[in-house]
């Protein structure tokens, strides 16, 4: 059930990428897709009643701890992915601002028209 909900969130973002005309809306949709994938991978690594992968004094026995903790590997990879998504967002915003300065609009169909007119 929760997997299906995460997939629906991904599909909403994918729908936005393919149907929006505004560059900012497309950036927002990509950000939604990233959130959906991150949440899905963390959901996969969850154990019912699991504790965070932090060893404390109550759980100092490594073999016992491994049976109670959630999966640390997706968390480490998603931590990388979150930071990368921010830098990708910054790059996309920079490209969009450049396009706005050149063409005066965020609408990709108007940008395409302006490019075709300037070529011919």
């Amino acid at each position: 059930m929760v997997y299906i909900l995460a997939t629906i969130l991904l599909i909403v973002g994918l729908f936005g990428v393919f149907t929006q005309k505004n560059l900012i809306k497309i950036i927002i949709s990509v950000s939604i897709i990233e959130s959906a994938v991150n949440v899905f991978l963390i959901l996969v690594g969850y154990r019912s009643g699991g504790i965070a992968p932090l060893m404390t004094e109550q759980h100092s026995q490594a073999e016992v701890f491994a049976l109670h903790s959630v999966d640390p590997l997706p968390q480490a990879m998603i931590l990388t992915s979150i930071v990368i998504s921010l830098s990708i967002l910054a790059l996309m915003v920079a490209i969009s601002l450049r396009l706005y300065h050149v063409y005066g609009t965020y609408d990709i169909t108007e940008i395409r028209k302006a490019r075709l007119n300037s070529k011919s």
């Binding site: 991150n38 949440v39 963390i42 504790i51 992968p53 932090l54 903790s69 959630v70």
Partner: peptide, 11 residues
């Protein structure tokens, strides 16, 4: 909030 519920406070 989902990360916090699923035992991922760093995230």
């Amino acid at each position: 909030a989902v990360f916090l519920l699923l035992g991922a406070p760093d995230l």
